[in-house]
């Protein structure tokens, strides 16, 4: 599998480490009244998507960047690759 890194171009998937659902970027507010419930959901509940899925990958044997990949879990087609720092910047 080839991952098209936004800065480096096509790279072998063997250079990367998979972390999981990109929703991990959206850490709940620990001061919110619903914090306990929010963190329970954040840590333990995941959508088991059949289709388009956004997920975190780390370029460990490369430039050490975190990426957000949009991947189809049925076909393994990767339709979008973004730097996680850009995605997190948009969210805040």
């Amino acid at each position: 599998m080839i991952i098209h890194h936004p800065l480096l171009g096509p790279r072998d998937a063997a250079e990367f480490v998979y972390l999981g659902d990109a929703s991990l970027l959206n850490r709940p507010d620990p001061a919110a009244p619903s914090a306990a419930e929010d963190f329970y959901t954040y840590l333990h509940l995941r959508d088991n998507t059949a289709g388009e899925h956004r997920e975190l990958w780390y370029h460990e044997q490369g430039d050490r960047s975190w990426l957000v990949l949009t991947r189809n879990t049925l076909t393994h087609e990767i339709t979008r690759v973004e730097l996680a720092r850009d995605v997190a910047g948009q969210a805040s």
């Binding site: 480096l8 171009g9 790279r11 063997a14 250079e15 044997q61 490369g62 430039d63």
Partner: peptide, 12 residues
């Protein structure tokens, strides 16, 4: 032209 004389890459 994928890897030129001014290219550098970190890989394994």
């Amino acid at each position: 032209p994928a890897f030129t004389l001014t290219s550098v890459a970190r890989t394994s």
